[in-house]
């Protein structure tokens, strides 16, 4: 059973005369990894600030596990890890100072603090850099140490704002692997980023924000888009020679919705699970169609991003 970990209920945020957020509503259920996409200035960071109790909404409310992150911050934020924007750390401090401080504040028992800090540092691949001053670290290493600090105290909710910013490709890949692993283990994740591939690699759902308003809340993969309808699964099928909707449809029967993407590519939507998927492939092969590959359709996130938020500041 899933439960709502985060409830953002009609969030408005105004700075002076500028409305940064307008009636933003969404929930994050336990174990969900959700991408938060939008151009610069759309209000992504502001949303994360409200969720993390850094800022207060002008109107609306936030609940983390049913608690107000500002009023009940001690309880609401205990199992939260948040990295919002790019916080600096005084250059003379060492990574282990920060990890120990976070462990203390999060109430990690004295005997477990060192182990908790070590595990968090190892998860981010910075265990060899914790005794260096922040001022001597590269941007990427400093960021990874901050990310490690968010993992202290075994959080069940991570709010990350551009977590891969400043990381080299290897570190970026490693971070995605870590985040995927955490999400698989039931951690709830809200990932605000400009990098669509980060979302594609980690998330199962995506929120689109434009000019402070939520303009999309949908599953990452198109195959999930019809979840409420007759078809809940999709496969991209590749053939070695041209096929038509009629030839594929003739092989499969009426329960399958077929879209010919290119002459040798078709997307088939159907309802069911692995058994129905296997049956589909068997029918195609039995009909003698030149099937050479089958895979889940690509998320096609870039196209949807442009459709939802336009082309400004796209990456």
């Amino acid at each position: 059973m899933t439960s709502d970990v985060v409830v953002a209920d009609g969030l408005w945020k105004r700075y002076g005369n500028r409305e940064v957020l307008r009636d933003v509503r969404f929930t994050l259920r336990s174990g969900e990894a959700v991408g938060y996409l939008g151009p610069n200035g759309a209000g992504k960071t502001t949303t994360l600030k409200l969720l993390a109790g850094i800022s207060r909404p002008t109107r609306g409310s936030v609940q983390i596990h049913g608690l107000d992150p500002v009023g009940d911050r001690g309880a609401a934020l205990r199992k939260l890890g948040a990295l919002v924007e790019t916080p600096g750390v005084p250059p003379y401090l060492q990574g282990r100072d920060l990890l120990d401080y976070v462990a203390r504040v999060k109430g990690v028992p004295a005997g477990e603090r060192r182990g908790a800090a070590r595990r968090a540092a190892e998860a981010m691949g910075v265990e060899g850099h914790t005794d260096r001053a922040f001022g001597t670290l590269s941007t990427g290493l400093a960021r990874r140490l901050l990310l490690a600090a968010t993992l202290i105290g075994e959080p069940d909710l991570l709010l990350l704002d551009e977590p891969t910013l400043g990381l080299d490709p290897a570190a970026r890949h490693d971070l995605r692997v870590v985040l995927r692993g955490l999400a698989r283990n039931g951690l709830t994740l809200l990932l605000s980023t400009h990098l669509l591939e980060d979302v594609e690699a980690v998330c199962g759902r995506v929120l689109f924000l434009r000019d402070g308003a939520l303009v999309g809340d949908e599953p990452l993969r198109p195959s999930d888009l019809d979840g409420g309808g007759a078809s809940n699964r999709a496969l991209r099928l590749r053939f070695s020679s041209d096929v038509t909707s009629a030839s594929v449809g003739g092989a499969l029967g009426p329960d399958y919705a077929i879209t010919i993407d290119t002459p040798r590519d078709a997307i088939v939507r159907f309802s069911g699970g692995d058994v129905e998927q296997r049956e589909l492939l068997v029918r195609l092969l039995a009909a003698g169609l030149p099937l050479v590959g089958a895979s889940p359709p690509e998320p096609d996130l870039a196209r949807r991003y442009f459709e939802r938020v336009g082309r400004e500041d796209s990456e």
Binding site: K49, A52, G53, I54, R73, G74, A75, A76, L77, R78, L80, A82, L83, V84, E85, T86, P87, G88, V89, P90, V102, V105, K106, G107, L146, A149, L159
Partner: peptide
Amino acid sequence: GEDLALRTHYFTFALPQS
């Protein structure tokens, strides 16, 4: 002032403390 200038408070304000 140092944390506010460096925006370290974006990190520390999200910690479960008064």
